[in-house]
Design a protein around this nucleic acid. Structure first.
Lengths: 105, 105
DNA sequence: TGACAGGTACGACTGATCTCGTACCTGCCG
DNA sequence: CGGCAGGTACGAGATCAGTCGTACCTGTCA
């Protein structure tokens, strides 16, 4: 099963890119908010209210998607992002919990 | 209790710098090798045989030290590095296990 | 149909990061 | 003492990452 539009499949998720993606505070915030929602929840990119331009938002979501942290699917007008919770938990158990436990600053 | 020579104390260890430090494969390798040794084990910087110059080795060990991942103490001629296992485990439980579980490539 | 909102693509700028060479300091040992 | 090995400091080069503006595409909705 090949990659679907830049989404690595589970066994292709590498620790290096994942940690690099999570090194950015804005991306960590996205993951944290998604982790706080019920499993499978999907939100639009713009619903996070990131304090950067649209182009930069796209850039950050691509980083998350290519690292394998989120899945993005087109739904009509927008593109919904959801956390790949089970996949990440399978590859790196506990990692999501560490990110989710970080407090806002 | 102030920082000791660039070593943050436990409550000052932040997730961002830690993840940024671990995003580099060379630094992850150092942490992995230290994690594989008995607790408290100390090794010289050069004993890891990193495939980079001395100056670059110093750079990477500073990144690890300032993130709070290792502790470096002068011992005569050399500077011994040891993993801050308990400190990291207290702040981010499971993180070391994730890094240690990564296989060589 | 036309306007608009959500996203993407591209190019550009800026600052950080990785890398190195060189110079230098400090113990150890012959 | 003199050399050497382990590390650091500094400066430089190259590459990468975060940011933006602009242009553009695509559904939705009045």
């Amino acid at each position: 099963m090949p990659d679907d539009e830049g989404h690595p499949n589970v066994e292709e998720i590498e620790l290096g890119p994942v940690l690099a993606a999570l090194a950015d505070p804005l991306r960590r915030r996205v993951v944290r908010e998604l982790a706080a929602e019920p499993d499978g929840a999907a939100r639009t990119c713009s619903s996070f209210g990131l304090p950067v331009s649209k182009a930069t938002v796209t850039h950050h979501f691509r980083a998350l998607r290519e690292a394998g942290l989120i899945r993005q699917v087109d739904r009509g007008n927008s593109r919904m992002a959801s956390l790949r919770r089970a996949d990440i938990e399978q590859r790196f158990p506990g990692l999501l919990g560490i990110v989710a436990a970080e407090s806002e600053e």
